[in-house]
Deep mutational scan, measured.
Amino acid sequence: KSEISQVFEIALKRNLPVNFEVARESGPPHMKNFVTKVSVGEFVGEGEGKSKKISKKNAAIAVLEEL
């Protein structure tokens, strides 16, 4: 299972809201860097990556460590 689906499963079991959002985009158009924030109830994680998908996955990994 992907880290993102694990976050949603845990949140569902604990009845917590999940929110993913792109917090920052930086860099030139051909080499963008994304920072995504995820919140699961009061737990927050942040991930960085060269694409929105990678930064979302890294944010999920960060919040899984707290859950």
Score class of each variant (00 low, 15 high):
residue 1 K to M: 09
residue 1 K to V: 07
residue 1 K to C: 10
residue 1 K to N: 12
residue 1 K to T: 10
residue 1 K to W: 04
residue 2 S to L: 03
residue 2 S to E: 06
residue 2 S to K: 13
residue 2 S to M: 09
residue 3 E to M: 04
residue 3 E to L: 08
residue 3 E to T: 08
residue 3 E to C: 09
residue 4 I to T: 06
residue 4 I to K: 04
residue 4 I to L: 07
residue 4 I to Y: 01
residue 5 S to P: 04
residue 5 S to T: 02
residue 6 Q to Y: 03
residue 6 Q to S: 08
residue 6 Q to E: 13
residue 6 Q to D: 05
residue 6 Q to V: 06
residue 6 Q to L: 10
residue 6 Q to M: 10
residue 7 V to N: 02
residue 7 V to M: 07
residue 7 V to E: 05
residue 7 V to G: 03
residue 8 F to N: 07
residue 8 F to M: 10
residue 8 F to G: 07
residue 8 F to K: 10
residue 8 F to Q: 09
residue 8 F to V: 09
residue 9 E to A: 12
residue 9 E to I: 04
residue 9 E to M: 07
residue 10 I to N: 01
residue 11 A to K: 03
residue 11 A to W: 00
residue 11 A to V: 00
residue 11 A to P: 00
residue 11 A to E: 01
residue 11 A to H: 00
residue 12 L to K: 13
residue 12 L to C: 12
residue 12 L to H: 13
residue 12 L to Q: 14
residue 12 L to M: 14
residue 13 K to I: 08
residue 13 K to Y: 07
residue 13 K to E: 09
residue 13 K to T: 08
residue 14 R to V: 03
residue 14 R to A: 09
residue 14 R to M: 14
residue 14 R to C: 07
residue 15 N to W: 00
residue 15 N to Y: 03
residue 15 N to F: 04
residue 15 N to D: 10
residue 15 N to S: 10
residue 16 L to A: 05
residue 16 L to G: 01
residue 16 L to M: 11
residue 16 L to I: 09
residue 16 L to Q: 11
residue 16 L to V: 10
residue 16 L to K: 05
residue 16 L to W: 12
residue 17 P to A: 11
residue 17 P to K: 14
residue 17 P to Q: 13
residue 17 P to Y: 07
residue 17 P to F: 06
residue 17 P to N: 11
residue 17 P to D: 07
residue 17 P to T: 14
residue 18 V to L: 06
residue 18 V to Y: 01
residue 18 V to W: 01
residue 18 V to M: 06
residue 18 V to R: 02
residue 18 V to S: 05
residue 18 V to D: 01
residue 19 N to S: 14
residue 19 N to F: 12
residue 19 N to P: 02
residue 19 N to I: 10
residue 19 N to T: 15
residue 20 F to G: 03
residue 21 E to H: 12
residue 21 E to L: 10
residue 21 E to W: 14
residue 22 V to Q: 13
residue 22 V to W: 06
residue 23 A to M: 15
residue 23 A to G: 08
residue 24 R to W: 08
residue 24 R to P: 13
residue 24 R to V: 11
residue 24 R to S: 12
residue 24 R to M: 11
residue 24 R to K: 14
residue 25 E to N: 15
residue 25 E to M: 14
residue 27 G to K: 09
residue 27 G to V: 05
residue 27 G to F: 05
residue 27 G to T: 07
residue 27 G to M: 06
residue 27 G to D: 08
residue 28 P to H: 11
residue 28 P to C: 10
residue 28 P to I: 07
residue 28 P to W: 07
residue 28 P to Y: 06
residue 28 P to M: 07
residue 29 P to A: 14
residue 29 P to M: 11
residue 29 P to F: 07
residue 29 P to T: 11
residue 30 H to Y: 09
residue 30 H to K: 14
residue 30 H to W: 06
residue 30 H to V: 06
residue 30 H to G: 13
residue 31 M to N: 15
residue 31 M to T: 14
residue 31 M to W: 09
residue 31 M to D: 15
residue 31 M to G: 14
residue 31 M to A: 15
residue 32 K to V: 12
residue 32 K to E: 12
residue 33 N to M: 11
residue 33 N to G: 08
residue 33 N to R: 14
residue 33 N to Y: 08
residue 33 N to V: 11
residue 34 F to S: 04
residue 34 F to L: 02
residue 34 F to T: 05
residue 34 F to R: 01
residue 34 F to E: 04
residue 34 F to I: 06
residue 35 V to F: 14
residue 35 V to N: 06
residue 35 V to Q: 11
residue 35 V to Y: 10
residue 36 T to C: 15
residue 36 T to G: 02
residue 37 K to E: 04
residue 37 K to R: 14
residue 37 K to M: 08
residue 37 K to L: 07
residue 38 V to K: 04
residue 38 V to E: 04
residue 38 V to A: 09
residue 39 S to C: 12
residue 39 S to W: 11
residue 39 S to R: 14
residue 39 S to K: 13
residue 40 V to K: 01
residue 40 V to I: 04
residue 40 V to P: 05
residue 40 V to G: 02
residue 40 V to F: 03
residue 40 V to Y: 01
residue 40 V to D: 03
residue 40 V to A: 04
residue 41 G to L: 00
residue 41 G to V: 00
residue 41 G to Y: 00
residue 41 G to K: 00
residue 41 G to N: 01
residue 41 G to E: 03
residue 41 G to D: 01
residue 42 E to M: 11
residue 42 E to F: 06
residue 42 E to Y: 11
residue 42 E to H: 14
residue 42 E to I: 06
residue 43 F to P: 03
residue 43 F to Y: 15
residue 43 F to A: 11
residue 43 F to C: 08
residue 44 V to I: 13
residue 44 V to W: 11
residue 44 V to Y: 11
residue 44 V to M: 13
residue 45 G to Y: 05
residue 45 G to M: 03
residue 45 G to A: 15
residue 45 G to P: 00
residue 46 E to W: 15
residue 46 E to Y: 13
residue 46 E to F: 15
residue 46 E to G: 05
residue 46 E to T: 15
residue 47 G to K: 01
residue 47 G to L: 00
residue 47 G to P: 01
residue 47 G to T: 00
residue 48 E to W: 14
residue 48 E to A: 14
residue 48 E to C: 15
residue 48 E to T: 15
residue 48 E to I: 15
residue 49 G to F: 00
residue 49 G to P: 01
residue 49 G to Q: 01
residue 49 G to H: 04
residue 49 G to M: 02
residue 50 K to F: 06
residue 50 K to L: 10
residue 50 K to E: 14
residue 50 K to W: 08
residue 50 K to Y: 09
residue 50 K to R: 14
residue 51 S to C: 07
residue 51 S to P: 05
residue 51 S to I: 00
residue 52 K to Q: 07
residue 52 K to T: 04
residue 52 K to V: 08
residue 52 K to E: 08
residue 52 K to W: 06
residue 52 K to A: 11
residue 52 K to I: 10
residue 52 K to C: 05
residue 52 K to Y: 07
residue 53 K to M: 07
residue 53 K to H: 08
residue 53 K to G: 08
residue 53 K to Y: 10
residue 53 K to F: 10
residue 54 I to Q: 12
residue 54 I to H: 09
residue 54 I to S: 12
residue 54 I to C: 08
residue 54 I to W: 03
residue 55 S to V: 01
residue 55 S to W: 00
residue 55 S to A: 11
residue 55 S to K: 00
residue 55 S to M: 00
residue 55 S to Y: 00
residue 55 S to D: 00
residue 56 K to V: 07
residue 56 K to H: 01
residue 56 K to F: 05
residue 57 K to T: 15
residue 58 N to R: 11
residue 58 N to W: 00
residue 58 N to Y: 06
residue 58 N to H: 07
residue 58 N to K: 10
residue 59 A to N: 02
residue 59 A to Q: 01
residue 59 A to V: 00
residue 59 A to C: 02
residue 59 A to G: 03
residue 59 A to W: 00
residue 60 A to Y: 05
residue 60 A to M: 06
residue 60 A to P: 02
residue 60 A to H: 01
residue 60 A to D: 03
residue 60 A to V: 04
residue 60 A to F: 12
residue 61 I to N: 09
residue 61 I to M: 11
residue 61 I to Q: 10
residue 61 I to S: 13
residue 62 A to C: 08
residue 62 A to R: 11
residue 63 V to Q: 03
residue 63 V to P: 03
residue 63 V to H: 01
residue 63 V to T: 03
residue 63 V to M: 08
residue 64 L to S: 05
residue 64 L to E: 05
residue 64 L to I: 03
residue 65 E to C: 06
residue 65 E to M: 07
residue 65 E to N: 12
residue 66 E to C: 13
residue 66 E to T: 13
residue 66 E to W: 12
residue 66 E to S: 14
residue 66 E to Q: 15
residue 67 L to R: 01
residue 67 L to C: 02
residue 67 L to V: 05
residue 67 L to N: 03
residue 67 L to M: 14
residue 67 L to D: 02
residue 67 L to S: 03
